[in-house]
Each structure stands twice: as C-alpha cells, then as structure tokens.
Amino acid sequence: MVSVRVKICGLSTGDTLAAALDAGADLVGFVHFPASPRHLGWAEARALAAAVRGRAERVVLLVDPDDATVAAALESVAPDLIQLHGRESPERVAAIRAMSGRPVMKALGIAEAADLARVADYAAADRLLLDAKPPRGAALPGGNGLAFDWSLLAGRPLPRGWMLSGGLRPGTVAEALARTGATAVDVSSGVETVPGAKDPALIAAFVAAVRAGAALGEAAGGLASAPRGV
C-alpha cells in the first residue's frame, strides 16, 4: 500500500498534540514565529516536544531565522526536521542545514506555473513543501487556509519527499491526493475552529481521510500523470 505521510502543524496544546499522536500523525509541527496565532515560546515548545517521545517526527517551523534562533530551536525542540517558511535563499537553506546538522524542508508559495520554476533552485533542501502563496499584504507566509491550483502540478517532475500543503481539510484531502499524487501532506488551519485553535476531532478526521484516500488511490492504481517524486 502507498504510504502517505501526514504532518499536523501549529500544535500548541497538550491535548491537541495527543490527538495528533493518537490519530497516527507521522510528523508534528511547532511554530516559532511571533506574528502567528500558533506561535510557541521556547519553554512551551520544549515541553510539547518532550511529550512526543519518539512517536512522530518533531518539526520546528521558522521564518527567516538568524543563527541564534536556529540554535535556540535545536536546544529547545531537538527537531528531526527544520521547516523554513520565509524568504530564505537557497544559500541560506544550505547554511542552516550545515550549521544545524538536521534535515531542512523549504516551503515554496505556489500561485502560478512560474512559481514552480524555483523548485530546481532549492536542491540543498532535503524536502520541499508546496503551499499556497499568501495573498498580497497577508501577515503570515502560510497557514492562511488557501489552496493553490493543483492542476499546476500535473506531469511535473518533483523531488522525492515533496509535501503538499495549503487549504487542505478532512473533506478535501482525498481529492488532493487523487489529483496530485502527493505522498506527504501538511495541515494547520484546516483542523482549526479559529486561527490557532486546533480541534482534536478534526485532527482525527483529517488523518482518517488521508488513510482512506491513500487506500482508495492504491485500489485505483494511482494516477499515471501525478508527480509522485523523482
């Protein structure tokens, strides 16, 4: 069976972290970005990360971090993966990967076909996360509850391990899997009742929908044109 990895991002309470782990999330994300309603200070992040106890991969999301912030993230979260969700250049991605000694996932905002041209520039990243480009003037680089046009991915070669994000919800993720062939998905606002407030029931429903959608895709033989990664 094709395994689709699930990341629940922006977790900020013990009960919602427990819901994500109990549902079988493969990755759990902690946001350190003061402008975000999902922001965690380092003490809060440390406590939540410790509770994961090897049940999932720990991801810390940073936005244009300086070296001191990266060092604090390593000390507090001990992440398995660093997610960069700002305007980090390919050179900065490579530098953070080298200084941290951890895999790095770079988020790229997608709104039109031209945005996918940047994929090749980020060969230094261990993974790419394709997210909806935020609208002009938006305060947040992600977590805005928007989806991009998935048809932009049709027939395009994408690096192995790429992850789909942007506007995914329990009711839409199966369609997203079928149309894009993604083997990893990320959700934040799609399992919230209000920005920053995760809902345990929605988390469980999202993970269940991913598993069901993956099983359905396997039974159907997948999509020949889907960019599953090269």
Rank of each mutant, 00 (worst) to 15 (best):
G221I: 14
G222W: 02
P141Y: 10
C9P: 05
G213T: 09
V210K: 12
A68N: 12
V31P: 04
F33M: 05
M163A: 06
D64A: 12
A201Y: 12
A197R: 10
A71K: 15
V77Y: 02
I96P: 08
P90Y: 03
A184H: 11
G145I: 04
T180Y: 15
A224V: 08
A114M: 14
T183V: 08
V77N: 00
A184S: 14
R127T: 06
S36I: 01
D67I: 09
G142M: 14
W42I: 11
W162N: 00
K7R: 02
A224K: 00
T172G: 06
G109A: 09
G14M: 10
D66S: 08
A209W: 05
V210L: 10
V28T: 11
L223D: 01
P34A: 12
S100M: 05
E112K: 13
R211N: 08
V194P: 07
W150C: 01
R169P: 06
P157C: 00
A226N: 03
G10H: 08
A71N: 07
A147G: 13
I110P: 01
V52S: 00
R118M: 11
A25M: 03
V31A: 01
V194S: 14
L202E: 10
P141S: 13
V119I: 11
L152D: 05
A120M: 12
Y122K: 10
A139L: 15
R58W: 00
V191R: 09
P200V: 14
V4N: 03
G229M: 11
L152E: 10
G142Q: 13
A25D: 02
P159F: 07
L40Y: 08
R5G: 03
